[in-house]
Nucleic acid binder design. Sequence first.
DNA 1: GTCTATATCTCGATAGAC
DNA 2: GTCTATCGAGATATAGAC
Lengths: 201, 201
Amino acid sequence: MATGTRDRILAAASTLLRRQGYNATGVKQVIDESGAAFGSLYHFFPAGKEELGAEAVMVSSAAFERLLAEAFDGVPDAATGVRRLFAEAARQLVDSGYAEGSAIATVALETANSSERVREACAAAFERWLTAAAARIAAGGAGTVPGTQRTPGNRAVELAVGVVAALEGALVLARTLRSTEPLRIAGELVAQQVDVALARP
Amino acid sequence: MATGTRDRILAAASTLLRRQGYNATGVKQVIDESGAAFGSLYHFFPAGKEELGAEAVMVSSAAFERLLAEAFDGVPDAATGVRRLFAEAARQLVDSGYAEGSAIATVALETANSSERVREACAAAFERWLTAAAARIAAGGAGTVPGTQRTPGNRAVELAVGVVAALEGALVLARTLRSTEPLRIAGELVAQQVDVALARP
DNA sequence: GTCTATATCTCGATAGAC
DNA sequence: GTCTATCGAGATATAGAC
């Protein structure tokens, strides 16, 4: 089955961590929202909150990877994929009443120097995002003229770092300022940079 | 005098919030680190932790504004100022053992939907950073040839958003991945963008 | 203004019946 | 595997002597 008790606990934790962060999210609240029994938490996650947090981060990471793939699917060029990625992030932010920004940035900052286990899960998530983004940028979009494609080298990786950093930073600004302007501006800037870099390699 | 009890409490709170965030920092810990008495906290900050947090954010904001000013002082062009800003952020991160990243990003994300008072302080801080960065970029650096300077219009503001977003996002990545590479890469990308934008307006 | 003692609450985690 | 009761620690905040 796809929605066992463990999965429901993880789904609830993933949402709560995104909205409230790690320290503000109590294990009891996770249990309440998931509908599971309190004892089930320590049955499925013997190491407690840290284990739950690390696993929930992996769930959130996978969700973002799907979002990233959707943004780049069928686009004429990589810059369009970047624009769609930022637009979708803005949509989620507004639709949630500015409650849902980056899926793991809050948790990553909170646990960077207090929980090695959760921090490693966040680091693994960012690594996967960077790898996925670099691959999409290196592909250059479906509309790239054959023969002009670049190898997925350093430039694509560097642009991927620029895209992810701009997205994460713009989400911090947007959530705090309660405005999508930072996402619109930063997204357009980095999209143009991807466009230029792929056009003149 | 410049270092009264209130100032010492704020200084301790500012440092702890930067390293641990809002929820992980207890008022008791702030008091211990400041050397003040517990009762002094509620004497100077009657509204308690939220008031202390908001005031500490303002202190951190001012410190970053000084850092930004120093990075741009005496540079031949704005892009050099951006490079110095990112380099200084990387230095602080490494020197602190990856404990001190953005002065307020963690607090901003934690309180975005739980404390309006602290969130507003963070929003005011970001607004000031953007304004200051835009002014420096619009100035174009001391080495700008007379007659080629641009008015501090929309472009400088947009570039400022790009710079601050890239810095905040790169700090999230760098702190989590325990590497200064994201700061180096994102900083260089955004510096080049500032350079190009100022050269061809 | 400073300091100590304490009230009240919630946290993560555990024990043990079923 | 599920569920309840509870522990001990630590949180913010308050009261009141000095």
